[in-house]
């Protein structure tokens, strides 16, 4: 359904930008898609499944994540974990984030 409230769209855009950083920051330990979704939700970030799964695949294709199928309990699950390249990228992204927050705090104060 099309989102009719323009403000709602702006907020979605704002949130969308930080999902990559949030995902990379939480994948120091391996997680499967649903457990990552719950983990992010517990930390206060609600991410739509339709956004998260394609994003995980894209980050893997870019080499920032790696994944492996594991058979555990009742069913196989695909586990994602940050790759060596992702570990190198993360500090840069964090730095960028800190600088954005500093600038915006200054502006909005």
């Amino acid at each position: 359904m099309a989102n009719t409230d323009p403000l709602e769209n702006v907020m979605l855009e704002l949130r969308r930008g930080i999902i990559v950083l949030a995902v990379l920051s939480q994948l120091g330990q391996e997680q499967y898609g649903y457990s990552l979704l719950k983990l992010l939700s517990d930390l206060g970030l609600e991410v739509d499944q339709g956004t998260l799964y394609p994003l995980l695949r894209r980050l893997e294709a870019q080499g920032l994540l790696q994944s492996v199928w594991k058979l555990e309990e009742a069913r196989p699950r695909r586990y994602y974990v940050i790759s060596a390249e992702g570990k190198k990228a993360l500090p840069r992204l964090k730095k960028e984030w800190t600088s954005i927050v500093t600038i915006m705090d200054r502006m909005l104060a």
């Binding site: 898609g33 649903y34 457990s35 799964y53 009742a74 069913r75 699950r77 695909r78």
Partner: peptide, 8 residues
């Protein structure tokens, strides 16, 4: 992956 997520 979709299957295992939905089951979860």
């Amino acid at each position: 992956e979709l299957h295992s997520t939905l089951e979860d």
